[in-house]
Computed example of a mutant assay.
Amino acid sequence: MTAFETSPDAPPPIESGHRFDADRRWAASLDLAFAPRDGVTRMTRCRHLGPLRVQRPFHPEGRHAEGRPGACHAYLLHPPGGLVSGDALTITARVEPGAHALLTTPAANKLYRADSHGVAWRQHTRLEVADQGVLEWLPQETLAFDGSRGEQCTTIALGETSRCLGWEVMALGRPASALPFQSGRIEQRFHLTRNGRPLWLERQPLDPRHPRFVGRWGQGGASVQATLWAVGLEDAAGAVDALREGLPEGPHWAVTVRHGVLLLRYLGAERNEAWQLCCLAWSILRPRLLGQPAHTPRIWLT
């Protein structure tokens, strides 16, 4: 055997990450920072490892009329288009004082069926917003295939005067193809703090074998769910009233405020309905939160 050959039965070196057994782990990370520069928000740090990138930043809103730095729109790209067994994605972003960042994705994220070893994937996101900073976290929806196994954790750390608006939309299975989510397990965790004080802590296991998945007291058999949050509203009660007046009536959504966090929930069976509900709610809330109308990222229209 030459120096460039290995036994066909030998696994690749552990440090490469390219294993095909139960210990596989393929890591990718993206570390971003945003700060005000020359009247707009600039992306001042972009470090990546593996298949995670940022398309060049955009400034479609220009400078704010009141002199505040204009928003920086950044699209987070994951070229594989989805997560498979062993994938470990880590996304961190920091918004500096006075900056305004809007982060989104160019397409839906897919969570594929686990391999024969049942190896899970992981996606951890940590978002930090300093005082007077603004962050909009608006990823396109996540599609979980039957048999997917993994953990999705979102941590948001706000300063005393930070503002944040975001959402997560999850569709389970592929009902249109008669492939419901009937095996696997996905765990979602949300941690939102202000100055280190917890405002919203949540853990949600999505396991079709558990009674809560079909029970009326839990998932109720719904295949689509969404959560939208907003922090920093001056009149949270008025924002709730505006949503109740401006959103289409129906049994699949509700809105409330707890510890200064506005939470809008959707639980139903229509992915497009959930997405449109979140977009409409964003258009109602953004002027109240930021004093600016909603500006649709152009990537959503392609």
Rank of each mutant, 00 (worst) to 15 (best):
S177T: 05
Y266R: 11
L77M: 15
E202C: 10
L247S: 11
D207H: 08
A65T: 14
L290A: 15
P80H: 06
P69G: 06
A10C: 09
P287C: 12
E66M: 07
P251Y: 01
R45D: 06
W200G: 05
R56W: 09
V231K: 04
A236V: 09
G220Q: 10
C278P: 06
F58Q: 13
H210E: 14
T161W: 12
A3C: 07
L30K: 03
Q152S: 08
H64C: 11
A28N: 04
P251K: 08
A281S: 15
V214H: 13
G166P: 14
T104W: 04
V240K: 03
M43G: 07
R149E: 00
C72Q: 06
H191L: 01
S183E: 10
G98P: 07
S16H: 12
L267K: 04
R265Y: 08
D31C: 05
S177K: 10
L143N: 05
H295C: 14
T6L: 06
W229Y: 13
S85C: 03
L165H: 07
D21Q: 09
K110H: 15
P36Q: 09
I91C: 02
T104N: 05
F4W: 05
F181C: 00
N272A: 14
R288W: 07
H64M: 08
I186K: 00
L127P: 09
A157L: 15
R197G: 08
Q204T: 15
H191Y: 09
R68L: 14
L285C: 11
P79F: 12
T125Q: 14
R37K: 14
G238P: 13
R37L: 12
D38K: 14
T155E: 15
Q188C: 02
G291W: 10
